[in-house]
Design a protein around this nucleic acid. Sequence first.
DNA 1: CTAAATAGTACTTATTCAGTACCAATTTAA
DNA 2: TTAAATTGGTACTGAATAAGTACTATTTAG
Lengths: 142, 142
Amino acid sequence: MIKMSKLTEYAFMVIMALKKSDLPASADYLASVTGLETPTVSKILKLLKKAGLLESKRGSSGGYFLVKRKHEISLNDVIVAIEGGMSLTECAEDDSACHLTQSCYMSAGMKKVNQVILNALQSVTVSDILDEKKKITLQIKP
Amino acid sequence: MIKMSKLTEYAFMVIMALKKSDLPASADYLASVTGLETPTVSKILKLLKKAGLLESKRGSSGGYFLVKRKHEISLNDVIVAIEGGMSLTECAEDDSACHLTQSCYMSAGMKKVNQVILNALQSVTVSDILDEKKKITLQIKP
DNA sequence: CTAAATAGTACTTATTCAGTACCAATTTAA
DNA sequence: TTAAATTGGTACTGAATAAGTACTATTTAG
Ligand code: SF4
Ligand code: SF4
């Protein structure tokens, strides 16, 4: 089964529990809210910060806070932050990842399919996932 | 990185090397054509057969052959055959897989996104991947 | 019968994932 | 100024999955 990692799923829970420009939330607090273990939450927060999705403040009464609103954060942003993105084949992401790229007869096709999926992931935001009213439809045009 | 397994990628190579209603091709022959190891090819063929994508004939001058044409086999068919499919979250595939499904606030949203990706995978066939002329585009409608 | 080929199972190894632990650096607040 | 709170970073462990290998039984053509 191709699926996102648990850590990525947890990352969504953490983002849901955060707010932009609010008082910083500590890893401990977020852990209690989400029901996850503190070290796990901490690991996620570090990854999200490295990706620029949130900022932190050290020291007493410090913590983490979003730098974007939830509708400005795409599903793809989170996946990239936690596990480096999504691409069906190695070459779709990085041409030098597979030495067969030049000669492979399916590399080009896979890249296209991958782009379709990428578009889908980029078009959906964190707040969309909570929004029952937004309809998400797809059309493949020949 | 979320990606398909190597075995799935190899499965495409094997399917490319097969033809419908042709003389059965042995695992050994397919291995030499694709450059993969025979046991690996054999494993793939068994999985593809179990999924109904091809049939086999035992004994001398036996082998495997497709029961569908390449434009009738979707990308999703292959992914399902080899690794059981693709779904971002556990619940998107099977409601009983995660005990949080009933209460989870993102389960519904994830299912929608998953459906978009699934549509993409079902809309592309094995022959499309080789067809440079087919344009694959996506539109998300709000 | 014999050779060729699939069918099925079971095993080993490598890699990735998930979770845990520890301590240094920083900042607030008393 | 001191102590407590909190991030930052690294490193480790165990579990799960993936990838590859090996072996043997069964079936069929000639
Ligand atoms: S070039 Fe071909 S074999 Fe290599 S990663 Fe891309 S699709 Fe796979
Ligand atoms: S119900 Fe929620 S927590 Fe469970 S698999 Fe689905 S999205 Fe993840």
